[in-house]
C-alpha cells in the first residue's frame, strides 16, 4: 500500500514537472558522458601501454658516415666495436636486465624503412649506408632503460641510445591531457546537474506544498514525505546515466571498434564490451548526484 502510494506520488510529480525532469535527464546525460569518455580514454591508455610495453625495445644505434656525436669521431662503427658491444650485452652487468637482443644491419634497416614508408617518395632517395645499424634490446623491465643508456651511450662506435618507450609516452601524455579535459568539463557539468536537480526538487516541493503540509499534520513520517522527491531526482539521473552509458558504448563500438581498429590494425584498441564496465560507475555517480543534492535541498525546503 505504502509502496503503491509512493510510486503514485512519484508518477504525479514527474508528470507535473516534465520540462524540468527532461532538463535534469539531459544535464546528467551530458555530464556523465564526459565522465564516461574520460574513463574510456584511460582504459585505452592502459590497453596501449600493456600492448606496446611488451614490444618496445631499447635501440642502440651505431655510428655511420654522417654521424656527428663525439663518440663517432673515428667514423663509422668498426666490426671490432660491434664485437665489443655484443660482449657487453652478454656481460654479467647487463645480461640480467635483458631478455634478448638482435642485431639489425644497415641492409635490414633499409628493408624495414621501405616497409614503413612504402607509400612515400622518400624511399627512393634513401640508401643503406645512410641508415644506422643498431642493436635492438628487449628488456626484462622496460623501466630499467637507464642501465642500457649508461652502459652504451659512451661506448665507442655508438651514436645514440633510444628508448622507444619515450616516443609512446608523448602519445600517452596527449591522451592523458584529453582525458583530464574531459574530466574538467564533466566536473562543470556535474555542478550544473547538482544545481539543476536542487532547483527542480525545490519547484516540485513548492507545487506540492498543500499535500506535504497535510502529510505533516496527519503524522506522515519523514521518509514518506521526502522519498517521492528524492526518487524523482534519482529516476531522472538514472535515465541520464543510462543514456550516457549507451552513448559511451556506441562511441566505443562504432568509432573505436568498427572504424579505428579497422584503420589501424597494428594498434590495440579497447572493445565495446570492455567499456560496459563503466556503466555501473556512471549509474552510481548519477544516483549519488541526485540523492545528495535532493537531500540537501529538502532539508532546507521541506521541514518535517
Amino acid at each position: 500500500m505504502r509502496l503503491a502510494f509512493i510510486l503514485g506520488e512519484i508518477g504525479g510529480g514527474l508528470r507535473r514537472n516534465v520540462s524540468m525532469v527532461v532538463s535534469v535527464i539531459l544535464v546528467t546525460f551530458v555530464s556523465l558522458t564526459f565522465v564516461g569518455t574520460a574513463g574510456m580514454l584511460q582504459m585505452q591508455i592502459n590497453q596501449m601501454k600493456g600492448y606496446w610495453y611488451d614490444k618496445v625495445q631499447v635501440a642502440v644505434f651505431l655510428c655511420v658516415d654522417t654521424s656527428t656525436s663525439p663518440s663517432c669521431a673515428s667514423g663509422p662503427a668498426t666490426d671490432e666495436q660491434k664485437k665489443n658491444i655484443e660482449t657487453l650485452l652478454d656481460s654479467a652487468a647487463v645480461k640480467p636486465y635483458v631478455t634478448s637482443w638482435a642485431y639489425e644491419s644497415q641492409a635490414d634497416a633499409l628493408k624495414h624503412f621501405k616497409e614503413q614508408f612504402a607509400n612515400s617518395p622518400i624511399v627512393d632517395s634513401v640508401s643503406a649506408d645512410q641508415l644506422p645499424a643498431s642493436f635492438r634490446v628487449n628488456m626484462v623491465n622496460p623501466e630499467k632503460y637507464q642501465i642500457i643508456n649508461e652502459t652504451f651511450s659512451a661506448t665507442p662506435g655508438v651514436e645514440t641510445v633510444i628508448d622507444q618507450r619515450q616516443l609512446l609516452e608523448k602519445l600517452f601524455s596527449v591522451m592523458n591531457i584529453a582525458s583530464l579535459v574531459a574530466v574538467g568539463i564533466a566536473g562543470l557539468m556535474i555542478i550544473c546537474a547538482i544545481l539543476l536537480i536542487a532547483t527542480t526538487i525545490r519547484l516540485s516541493a513548492f507545487s506540492r506544498r498543500r499535500e506535504t503540509g497535510i502529510m505533516r499534520l496527519v503524522g506522515a513520517s519523514k521518509a514518506v514525505i521526502q522519498l517521492p522527491f528524492v526518487l524523482e531526482g534519482v529516476i531522472a539521473a538514472v535515465i541520464g546515466a543510462v543514456l550516457a552509458s549507451g552513448t559511451v558504448w556506441a562511441v566505443a563500438k562504432f568509432f573505436i571498434q568498427d572504424y579505428l581498429a579497422d584503420q589501424y590494425k597494428d594498434t590495440a584498441f579497447i572493445s565495446a564490451n570492455q567499456v560496459l564496465i563503466l556503466t555501473p560507475g556512471l549509474l552510481v555517480l548519477g544516483i549519488l548526484l541526485a540523492g545528495i543534492s535532493s537531500l540537501l535541498t529538502l532539508r532546507k525546503y521541506l521541514k518535517v
Partner: peptide
C-alpha cells in the same frame, strides 16, 4: 485545506495512506 484534485473519499483516505 483540502486537495482540490482529489475526491472527498480520496481526501480522507489520503490521511490514512500517508501513514501506511
Amino acid at each position: 485545506r483540502l486537495l482540490p484534485n482529489k475526491t472527498v473519499f480520496a481526501n480522507v483516505a489520503f490521511a490514512m495512506q500517508v501513514i501506511g
